[in-house]
């Protein structure tokens, strides 16, 4: 615990497809809902009906605009723990409450050990740590550890809540350590990338980039306009093209 496992048997994680994420917040809310009574329960909300409501959420959805000077675009962007391979959130933790599991690489906080020093949240560049002031402990995405192995759930339901809920099916779950897994292949095909690689944290989760726009002639294999037919005036001759016998 103190230190990171040298190697994890699996690298379980999420892949989010930014090409199809519509920014609907379903993943964020379903995450909140599952985890409210899950491993890190509850996810306290303070001032719930007042001026400044704020709560513990493991997943939050941003919206960005990009501008290259000619084209601008909008990109929806969910953000949760990336279950990094070299996460300082674990190593800075003075109590061992924060740890990375050797068996699957999931980064967790042990609620019984955490002293709520918040240092791990300072050490996470990805904003994935959520302090529950009411409980006085740090909480975070558990990769739905209480779902993915849960024998009380149907096999097909043993997936993170956010993945199951995502209406656009923009979220994928699997073993990113296994190059043969569906999810690794997807990352491979689509040029999946890690956020802020310069941190050296080596996020396990990956993002699939938005595809290039198709807004110029030729992008769909067409010309930029239709050729007017020869007799295209609206004069009566125009309708000669209708001479072909059409049967009902």
């Amino acid at each position: 615990m103190t230190s990171l496992p040298k190697k994890t048997q699996k690298k379980l994680g999420l892949v989010t497809d930014l090409d199809i994420c519509v920014g609907c917040h379903a993943c964020a809310v379903s995450c909140k809902e599952w985890n409210a009574s899950g491993h890190s329960a509850p996810l306290t909300d303070s001032d719930a009906y007042g001026k400044d409501p704020s709560g513990v959420w493991f997943n939050r959805v941003h919206v960005y605009e990009t501008d290259d000077g000619h084209n601008t675009r909008t990109v929806n962007f969910p953000r949760s723990c990336l279950h990094c391979e070299q996460p300082a959130c674990v190593t800075v933790c003075p109590t061992g409450a924060s740890y990375k599991r050797e068996e699957d690489g999931i980064v967790l906080v042990d609620a019984e050990k955490c002293i709520g020093c918040k240092l791990c949240s300072w050490a996470c560049p990805y904003g994935a740590r959520e302090y529950d002031a009411d409980d006085g402990i740090m909480k975070k995405c558990t990769l739905c550890i209480d779902r993915i192995y849960n024998e009380n759930l149907e096999e097909s339901e043993r997936q993170p809540a956010c993945v199951i809920a995502c209406p656009a099916r923009a979220r994928h779950f699997g073993d990113l350590g296994d190059p043969e897994s569906d999810i690794s292949r997807l990352v491979e095909q689509r040029g999946g990338y890690a956020l802020m690689p310069e941190t050296g944290y080596q996020p396990v989760n990956k993002y699939l980039p938005p595809r290039p726009r198709k807004d110029r002639a030729g992008d769909t294999g067409t010309t930029d306009h239709l050729e007017a037919a020869e007799d295209s005036s609206s004069g009566s001759s125009f309708f000669s093209w209708l001479d072909k016998a059409l049967s009902r």
Binding site: D52, H62, Y64, D68, P125, Y131, P210
Partner: peptide, 24 residues
Amino acid sequence: TATGLGHLGQVSQLEAPHTSENYL
């Protein structure tokens, strides 16, 4: 670099996830 969207140009936030402030 945080979003990995730099190849699309200058990146700015249009909407934060929540309208109220959070712990972060």
